[in-house]
Amino acid sequence: MSTIQRSLIGALTALMLLGGNAAQAADGATKRIMVYGDSNTWGYVPVESGPTTRYPQDVRWPGVLRVALGPGYEIIDEGLSARTTDLPDPTLPHISGAGLDGSAYLPAAIATHLPLDLVVIMLGTNDLKKMFNRSPLRIALGVGKLADIVNQAKGGVGTSYPAPKVLILCPPPLGTVAPPERAERFAGGIDKSEALPAYYEGIAAAAGAGFLDVGKLTTTDGVDGIHLTAAAHKAIGNGVAEKVKAILK
């Protein structure tokens, strides 16, 4: 047998082994988790004004979650800055298609990433904007709509996967929002954000979803009062990991 033939046989054997591992993952050996959120999931670095950058993957809380869970879990990061629960945002028309309406994009996101064991949702901060005029209850109902979408997400396109489980995270309350123009955009939002946990917990119970109040893990500690420092991301990732393990045990 020539060297080339031996190399080809070795390569084919490796491909077969990789195929077997992929099949095992698809059959559920690896728990697949999609994290669905806004800029605090995307990894927006807080700045008082001007453009910003994104935290590296290992700093963002979904990345911290990935490390905390360890082998056997796959994290799919679906964060988008300015995303709402179920509202279009007329101030950002260049984000076309489903836009910033979380309920409009969620069905396609789920179908894209099936099979999924769990969808983790942390949204509602952008619903606090003054222009939307939403009560804490209405914001929680928006999150409930997302949970309902996940609960009904059976099959995907040409498949028969079951619907994933749901974990609802209530964002931490807003801090002192800055600068003044941003504070005006979120006027009244601090009080509303502090009222969210009770409503979120009730909605999660009604939807048969898991619940975690992220405000018990960290504060909104960025300089702008809306976004999170690296330390906060670490606290969230580690705290959510414990909840995920309990749900998927």
Rank of each mutant, 00 (worst) to 15 (best):
A209Q: 03
P71G: 06
A68S: 13
G20D: 02
K130E: 15
L137C: 02
A22E: 15
G239S: 12
S103H: 05
A111S: 14
K31Q: 15
L69K: 00
N40I: 09
A98L: 02
G50L: 11
V244R: 00
C170W: 05
A108Y: 10
A98V: 06
P93W: 02
R138C: 01
T159E: 10
H227Y: 08
G37T: 11
S39V: 06
Q57G: 07
D224L: 11
A153V: 07
T85D: 09
D127E: 12
K245Q: 15
A163K: 03
K245F: 00
Y199A: 07
G208C: 09
T30D: 13
V223G: 00
P136E: 08
G20E: 03
M1E: 09
E201C: 03
D38C: 10
A98I: 00
V166P: 04
R185S: 03
P115M: 13
N40F: 01
R138I: 09
G10F: 02
Q152H: 15
G70S: 10
P51A: 08
I149R: 02
D101H: 03
L69V: 00
D224P: 13
M1C: 05
L167W: 01
V120R: 00
L116R: 04
L137R: 15
R6A: 12
P71E: 15
D221R: 03
T41K: 04
T125L: 12
L116C: 09
M122K: 07
T41R: 04
G215N: 03
Y199N: 11
A183Q: 07
K243M: 00
S49D: 14
P180C: 02
P115Q: 09
A230L: 13
N238M: 14
E184L: 08
V177M: 04
L118M: 06
G156R: 00
M16W: 06
G175Y: 04
I139P: 01
G20H: 08
D58F: 04
I203E: 11
G208N: 11
T220L: 03
T30Q: 12
M131K: 15
P197H: 02
I139N: 03
L65R: 00
K245D: 01
T176I: 05
V120Y: 00
I190F: 08
L116V: 08
E78W: 05
R134D: 11
L137W: 08
P93F: 02
G99K: 05
M131W: 02
A140I: 12
G79L: 06
S103N: 07
K249W: 02
A26L: 15
V223P: 04
L80V: 14
G10N: 09
A246T: 14
K31P: 07
E242T: 15
G97T: 01
L137K: 14
D101S: 12
G144R: 05
E181V: 06
N151C: 06
E78T: 03
N151E: 07
K31V: 01
F186G: 02
Y36S: 11
P56S: 13
I9T: 07
Y36G: 11
G215T: 06
K216C: 05
V45Y: 11
P180I: 01
L141A: 13
R182K: 10
P107N: 05
T91V: 13
R54E: 14
N151I: 02
P173W: 03
L248I: 01
G28S: 10
L8A: 12
Y161K: 08
S160H: 12
D89M: 10
N133F: 04
N21V: 13
E194H: 11
A14Y: 03
P71L: 04
F211V: 12
G144E: 08
R32K: 15
T53M: 07
P46Y: 02
L123K: 06
N238H: 11
